[in-house]
Amino acid sequence: MSGNMNLTLKVWRQKNESSKGQFVTYKAGDVSPDMSFLEMLDVVNEGLVKKGDEPIHFDHDCREGICGSCSLHINGRPHGPKHGVATCQLHMRSFEDGQTVVIEPWRASAFPIIKDLATNRSAFERIQRAGGYVSVNTGGVPDANEIAIPKVIADEAFSSATCIGCGACVAACKNASAMLFVSAKVSQLALLPQGQPERYRRVQAMVAQMDEEGFGSCTNTGACEAECPVGISLTNIARMNRDYFTAKLFKEDEV
């Protein structure tokens, strides 16, 4: 097909967490502009496997922008040059023929590299486990329409809840801070009536875990918001800060 592109890829290759990595250059030929970025890598990998080389490892799953698995830092930006999409929804038409594309893993001490471009994001898991829930058991809950929730509040909580947990916020932040991720979950439950009983406990527990994981601190650059594929807003961070200081300075809940 005419209009296909040839690209030079500089890909970070690293055997495992403890080994030293380096960039390896590959040629990606005959790339269709309709391919997704990951499909382009699939094709490169097919070539590598056929040559008896190890394919490039990267996390991916749903390939429709919702599971949050994919996580590539492309030409200096998490999820690449296009705004508001995850790497799996980035298409090759966002690149130019002959371009050099540098592909790196998320870089953060809290996200150790597993192999090549795949990182271990279990720090996010531990933060969620520390308090990202409403403590209700199955059964014995009131009717769903028992509590009326103003639509604006419900919509705001929904917007916070859309976070896909990909970690682009950490990757984009010059400090590798996880504030946007943590604040999105804290906010969702802080906004809803269901989250109120544990509101001030939750924020303390989740922030404490976040600090323990070794993420950097927030300097309000806004890079996280700009690179978030689902547009989680900085307002969440302000809300979390507010709740955290309220909890620490004025509430008696302790964790």
Partner: peptide, 30 residues
């Protein structure tokens, strides 16, 4: 103190980082 902590949070930096694409220069150079 914060800067040192933040450095530690990313011991290996990016080869390419397009900071201007997502944040104002001032915010990154406080």
């Amino acid at each position: 103190i914060l800067t040192m902590g933040n450095r530690k949070a990313r011991p290996v930096g990016y080869a390419v980082q397009a900071g201007n694409a997502n944040s104002p220069w001032t915010s990154r150079n406080m």
